[in-house]
Design a protein around this nucleic acid. Structure first.
Lengths: 206, 206
DNA sequence: TTGCAAGGAGACCATATGGTCTCTATAATA
DNA sequence: TATTATAGAGACCATATGGTCTCCTTGCAA
């Protein structure tokens, strides 16, 4: 079974109404909102949505609709990605990692995520051990930007590095003079997987 | 007019119900929840709460109660205090300063606030120009802690300093070897007003 | 064509629920 | 004591609203 256009429309309307009014709409209000005349017709869609688990109605109660698993219920948050599964980072929020109660839009991206910084390799950029690096997902990187990368075969986890490239090489440089930069030439360059760009840092003291 | 115990109870119940169920309770459900038999009695309290502007009902609509200005409506956030009014910092959220969409409980305090850092006086603590310092309000300070202070007659704005005191002196030291510490003796010590302790740092890159 | 399914319109029903009214009990006040 | 105010109980009403049923239209496939 699939969600039709009308049903998406209904979900959107309920979500919007709920957010705006503070309580769910009645069937007839939904009808008005999406341009239906008969609520008898609407109820078929509602039942379909219920059977798909996207909405929940309380039989016998009036104006009692609950959106299941929607933005209006969930508070936007930033997931902390602990371990990165080899090669393919787990970006899905499914795995119950830690969640920062911070609206990711604050960092300009609804799908930003966080990585916990280990060590002092970025200390000259004033990013210290234990800090949370906020990453905006993107594949490309500008020269000089701090990015989260996975380097194939080197470490299973993502690391922060300063990115710099030219026609021949890609250089990943720590912000710490005591650490050596990693330089990749030719085919080696494909070992680098850019997860995203650093857009923020959060430090919480105990 | 004042909010009685019963009325507080009603507000709490509505808020809890709303949060838990996703829609507001009916009058009879409120009755059950707070131990009333007749909803006729309840409605008097509801009307009183309405006249105080704490709740809003939609006449003619069923199960349509809206909590005005409550936690369930508002998303918890951290206020950014820009200017600090001479001596008495404006901690009230009333003035429409910037709000960080971050749950202050993340930093262990529901009334944490933020200050925007100016300059590099705390650079050795890896707090740089433009960072947001998250402050938990408190009057006292432990030795070695980073605190937000207002120094009477010196600056109209709050500044971050490392706090250290003994029987005779209070020392406010920047985390930057090129800056001089401020030392206060005797009565001068009362010129210092500690706003709170640094519990976090947030950096957002444009 | 015929048959079937989906989407919608419109009417009708049962009831959950807001609204109102009256009566009682208790406490405070004159 | 008498009076007033407040909180609550209980009954009754009007209606907004969920639920159901029938009929119509459209589109698609046999």
């Amino acid at each position: 079974m699939t969600v039709t256009e009308r049903q998406k429309q209904i979900l959107d309307f309920i979500s919007l109404f709920q957010k705006h009014e503070g309580f769910p709409p009645s069937l007839r209000e939904i009808c008005k909102g999406i341009g239906l005349v008969s609520h008898g017709s609407l109820i078929k869609h509602i039942r379909s949505l219920e059977s798909q688990g996207l909405i929940k109605g309380m039989p016998g109660k009036k104006r009692a609709w609950k959106l299941v698993d929607s933005q209006s219920t969930k508070i936007p948050s930033i997931p902390v990605l602990g371990r990165i599964a080899a090669g393919n980072p787990i970006l899905a929020q499914e795995d119950k990692e830690e969640q920062l109660p911070i609206n990711p839009s604050f960092f300009g991206s609804s799908d930003a995520f966080a990585l916990r910084v280990k060590g002092d390799s970025m200390i000259e950029a004033h990013i210290q051990d234990g800090d949370l690096a906020i990453i905006r997902p993107q594949q490309e990187a500008e020269n000089g930007a701090i990015v989260a990368v996975i380097v194939e075969g080197v470490e299973p986890e993502a690391t922060l590095k300063i990115f710099r490239s030219n026609n021949e090489t890609i250089e990943l440089r720590p912000a710490n003079e005591f650490y050596e930069p990693l330089i990749f030439r030719g085919n080696d360059r494909s070992k680098i997987k850019v997860l995203g760009k650093l857009v923020g840092v959060i430090r919480a003291k105990p």
